[in-house]
Design a binder for these strands. Sequence first.
DNA 1: CGGTATCCCCAAGGATACTG
DNA 2: CAGTATCCTTGGGGATACCG
Lengths: 161, 161
Amino acid sequence: MTDLLADRDGWLMTNCSIARTLDVVGNRSTLLLLREASLGTRRFDDFAARVGISEPVAAARLKQLVADGLLERRPYQEPGKRTRDEYVLTDKGAQLVPVLVALRQWGDTWAADDAGPSVRLEHHDCGAEVHAVLRCAGGHDVEPDELDVRPGPGLLRVDTE
Amino acid sequence: MTDLLADRDGWLMTNCSIARTLDVVGNRSTLLLLREASLGTRRFDDFAARVGISEPVAAARLKQLVADGLLERRPYQEPGKRTRDEYVLTDKGAQLVPVLVALRQWGDTWAADDAGPSVRLEHHDCGAEVHAVLRCAGGHDVEPDELDVRPGPGLLRVDTE
DNA sequence: CGGTATCCCCAAGGATACTG
DNA sequence: CAGTATCCTTGGGGATACCG
């Protein structure tokens, strides 16, 4: 990656979209709960058990995820059973799936279990394996070292002297 | 997303590549240090200042990143100046760039600053903007709701009763 | 089943001071 | 400049018990 911003005395990253995303999903259990939601988990107890966290923690994180609009809580009823609530991904939450896929594939590559990956992601239409990739608007695949970093409109100038 | 694993009593995600990735980069300052490294920051003080963390924290995280093989520490010398050390991304570290890009674009969409994004990522070859996208091996673009989740070889079966 | 209340522990991280 | 040492605060998270 060409480091066009490397020499940037006086530039601060106070406005950073990565940091603001991490303000929302920057903790382990939150991300693992989203993983579960993306795999189809809907019920409170399943979230806690599958992520491996206690109920109080699950309750707090799920509540926050609903407050942040990543999950929606809604009543549902299986035929013949009593109503219960379920947690489902909103659009806003679903748009974090590329983050989850990218984390998963790094782990598959660099921190894999001997037994191999526990899940395989397939394209519903054709069954082929799905990956997170970088691509430019011109349609080219982009490797990490082919990225140029340019200052954007929201880059803050701070005079330090 | 079709939830083929939703009804999975007895299945546990003890082998999860996302969780193992988060074991390495699952904390805020670690990810923000990698952001800085990917933007070209190399010196200790710059890492601490630009991420906005104290020196002791920066020292501990950078040391761990080197130990985990995401950053490499090596001496360098500007002409006429004394030697100093720098921290640079390894291949293993650079392969986390898609995670950073995906986090950034979610933040740009859902948690944007009024001033707009602070950086813009361009393809070095053509200057077009770069995004993280999902794509299948068949070459199709994949939306989050077009994903099928299949059990992989490493999925653990746990008999719970 | 789907949570809340309470208590306790520990790791992340800030502030400050100091060293090579 | 590039860290280490020390101290302290905060919040994430486990355990247990209880509630509608």
